[in-house]
Structure formats: structure tokens, C-alpha cells
Amino acid sequence: MPIDLDRALGAPPATREIAWTSRDVLLYHLSLGAGADAATDPELGYTYERGLRVLPTFAMVAGQGISSGDRPPTAMNMPGIDIDLRRILHAGQGLTVHRPLPASGAATVASRVAHVWDKGKAAMIVLEQSATDGEGGLLWTTNMRIWARGEGGFGGEPGPEDRWAAPDREPDVTLESPTVPGQALLYRLNGDLNPLHADPEFAGAAGFDRPILHGLASYGIVAKAVVDGVLGGDVTRLRGLSVRFAGPLFPGETIRTRVWREDGGLMFQSTCPERDDAPVLTHATAEVST
């Protein structure tokens, strides 16, 4: 059985040591489209090591790196869970940053399976991670929700309802974020080598016409758009970001993000205008500081 519920939930947190440099941060920003209009605005705050500011969503790739010896993963493997990558989708992501991220650093990351919800035809696997520095100070925490097709029906709890609705008024800001056809090929150099984002044959077997953009790429692109378009370019004001990945985005398409200012933060949703505003990110909130 691919999911052993008791083993998955009972396993102790797995820990690993990570480190990153400004080059990792620069690559991450470039993979989100920073500096795309370099002739008029090279966005040096994102693309040049002097005075480099770090998007909080860099936490999602910090320490993953890439080398010529890496091989693309073929399954999701952890205690009690062994599922072919073609059966899983990244369903949602949450991030809380506890202090501004340094351009270079090191951390200890602890990971555990927090929940496995029974959704009938699928299982929702909730992975939690926390990163601490060498002195034990908390840097960030994350909550990743993985949709595993065909793994439900085991009699487990369905999980809490996710109540969310866009405000019944016009958005305060609408942001447009174009992507380029090679965006996924660049973004995967951050360390996510899932062939779904590069190999047309693999993407076809997963039910897509062609490779799709990483959900976390859309996540980072929208985070950058919100920082630049709503928070005055101040990366330190973005303290948390939670979204549901509602639909695929194909490299070369545009992300349109409608933002509403609400007490204590922002609500937003992102769509693809080339496909009649098909949903890309929903149930989306951002925690911001003043």
C-alpha cells in the first residue's frame, strides 16, 4: 500500500542541514522573471549581489541546489508514503517568515507529515517544515499540501473545510505578470527536477498537453508582483503567503492577480487571461507588516 497512515504520522521529523549563497538567490529571482526588462530596469535589488534583497519565497528552494550528478525523482518517498510522481499534484502552499532572509546562510530544516486527509478519490498529504539557524532561531515555517490521486478511500478524516471567498467589490490593485516559454526550464534549476515541468512525454502521461510551470514558480512570481506592486518593493513587509493551486499555468502565459486590501493583510486570486481567466491561485492570503 503506497500510504501507511500510522507510519507516516508517527515518524519522527527528518532533519537536514542546508546552506545557500547569493548566487542561489540571484538564480531564484531570475527564474521568476526579475530583470526581464534589463534595458530599461535591470531590477538590481533582485539581480545584483550588491545590496541584494531576498524575496521571502526563496525559503521554498533554499538549500536545494543542483549539480550534474542529480537525477530527476520518480516517486514521492518518505516514511509510510511511496507514490509515483505522475499521481501527485502540489495542491497548496503556506509560508511564514519569522525574520528577513539573509542573502547567504545556513539552517537546519525539520520535516514531518502533519496530516493525511481522506478526500475520497485522493489523499491530501500535509507536510510541515521549519528552518532554524545555528543558534536555534526560527527562520521560516512552511505548510505544503500534496494531492495524491487514487490514494483516498482509506476511511480517514476528510480534513477541515477551507472557507474563503473573494471580497464582493472591485480589487484594489490588478497586477499582470507575463511568463516566457522557457520559464519552467529555468525555474527547475532551483532544484525541483520533476519531469512534469520539462518532458512533454511525461507531462502527457500526467494528463497535460505539454509541460506546465511549477506551482511554486507561480507562487514566487505572484509574491514578487505583490511586493513590487502593493508593498513598495519592500521584501521585508511580506511576512506570510498561503495559496491553493487551482489550475495549471503553461510557460509563456500571463498571471493576472487581483488584490484586495483587508484588515491585517491582503486577499488575492490569480488567473490566466489567455484562457478566459482560468484560475491559477485561489484561497490566497498574504500577511504583511506596515
Rank of each mutant, 00 (worst) to 15 (best):
I3G: 01
R7C: 01
P12S: 12
T15P: 00
R16C: 07
T21D: 14
S31H: 12
D37I: 06
T40W: 09
T40L: 10
Y46N: 05
A59R: 08
G63E: 02
Q64A: 13
S67P: 00
G69P: 02
P72V: 05
P72M: 04
L85H: 03
R87H: 10
T96V: 15
A110K: 07
W117D: 14
D118E: 07
K119W: 04
G120S: 05
K121H: 13
K121S: 15
L127S: 03
E128W: 12
A131S: 14
A131V: 03
T141V: 08
R145Q: 13
I146R: 02
G150M: 05
G155A: 08
G156A: 04
P160N: 07
R163W: 03
T174L: 03
V180D: 05
A184D: 01
N194Y: 06
N194K: 00
D199R: 12
P200M: 13
G204Q: 11
G204H: 09
H214D: 09
G215V: 03
Y219C: 11
Y219M: 11
V226T: 03
G229V: 11
T236R: 14
L238Q: 03
L241H: 13
L241W: 15
F245E: 09
L249P: 10
P251Q: 05
E253P: 10
R256D: 10
R256E: 14
R261V: 15
G265H: 10
M267I: 12
M267T: 13
D277F: 07
D277H: 08
T285G: 08
